[in-house]
Amino acid sequence: MAETITIEVARYRPEEEGEPALQSYEVPLNKDWVVLDALNHIKDHVDGSLSFRWSCRMGVCGSCGMTVNGEPKLTCATFLSHYAPGPIRVEPLKNFPVVRDLVIEMTDFLEKLQSVKPWIVRKDDPAPAKGEFLQTPEQLDEFKQFSMCINCMICYAACPVYGLDPQFVGPAAIALAQRYNLDSRDQGEQERLDVLSQHEGIWGCTFVGECTEVCPKNVDPAGAIQQYKLAATKDWFKSFLMPWSKQ
């Protein structure tokens, strides 16, 4: 018999139990397996009722974020062998309501994302047939990093400000707002600033930096938040000192 490892999975079935509880399984410790493979092994061969989200198994769809031994992780990019000899504890992402087992509720994020207008805003609207907007590789570089977000919610799970105040727009949504602000094709920075400054939560962020630390795609949302704060402060001074400058 090959080596095995114990994996403790948080189970919560709202129709059956009032509180989540851990359940242990033994799974083969295959060196090529990621945590997600172990969960699939359980689902396919041990307990078909275990529920979790996944799709691409290549770290790009953003479905499979969970808490592994206390840390938020993409489970399709987290190897079992890293935790040998175990046990490994797998729980749903923190700071979100749990729907079932390892499945969390994230419509809150989608609403916040929509509220920051994550699309190109143009005052003029030249027809695409006229050709592309020119953008040099350097200009692309300005926002590229913030465009790499896969919406995996791992930064939200690591953010204490979001945990304490769910009103906080949060790391990824701000990073994506900043992604468009920095895009040379966009003209919507002011609109986004107006929206974001209505959210009190942002000033609650005093640079914990965990979001950047845990982000699997090196998006650096903490950087985006600080950039945004600077912009908001400048904007405030401008409208305070020169109220006529803003229409």
């Binding site: 919560y12 709202p14 129709e15 059956e16 139990e17 009032g18 509180e19 989540p20 309501p97 749990v98 729907v99 079932r100 509720e105």
Partner: peptide
């Protein structure tokens, strides 16, 4: 559990 109503799962 008392909290569960059909099609209205209670989020934990």
């Amino acid at each position: 559990p008392v909290a569960y109503r059909q099609y209205h799962p209670k989020w934990h």
